[in-house]
């Protein structure tokens, strides 16, 4: 059974693409992102981790942020996806589909003692 630390690392690894995916739909402000992510059970270990992640994504050029100060509303910093972010998200989706299928396969066959390598060999 994976340890809590292992799950945390797993969450950390997929949280970025999840943020990109949420921003793909529309720009969002910080708390909005946090709540959307929190709605996905088990994805967030703590709300605060989203902000360092957003800053890292922005440094990487995958998201941008800008303040919006609309009348009647409080000023908010909105995050939106860049083209590089879209490309990165698309690449992750492709890799994730393959990766998760591989992991699923390994996990499922692990019960019967068949490794992924053996499975590949059979397919060839």
């Amino acid at each position: 059974m994976p340890s809590e630390g292992g799950l945390t690392e797993l969450r950390r690894g997929v949280l970025g693409p999840c943020v990109l995916a949420l921003l793909e739909l529309r720009p969002r402000f910080g708390l909005e992102l946090v709540r959307d992510l929190a709605d996905a059970d088990g994805l967030l270990t703590s709300d605060g981790t989203v902000y360092p992640l957003l800053n890292r994504l922005r440094d990487a050029g995958l998201v941008t942020s800008e303040w919006q100060d609309e009348e009647g509303q409080r000023a908010r910093r909105y995050y939106s996806l860049t083209q590089a972010g879209q490309d990165s998200l698309a690449a992750f989706r492709s890799e994730w589909a393959q990766f998760s299928a591989t992991v699923d396969g390994v996990l499922n066959h692990d019960r019967t003692g068949v490794t992924a390598g053996q499975q590949k060999g059979r397919q060839r």
Partner: peptide, 29 residues
């Protein structure tokens, strides 16, 4: 900004503590 948005001036101590707890410890952050 997160706290300002998540809380209201009328938030109870329990509500505030819950929001802060979900944010995570400052050291972890």
């Amino acid at each position: 900004a997160h706290l300002d948005e998540a809380l209201t001036p009328d938030s109870s101590d329990e509500e505030i503590a819950a929001v802060l707890s979900r944010l995570g410890r400052p050291a972890d952050l």
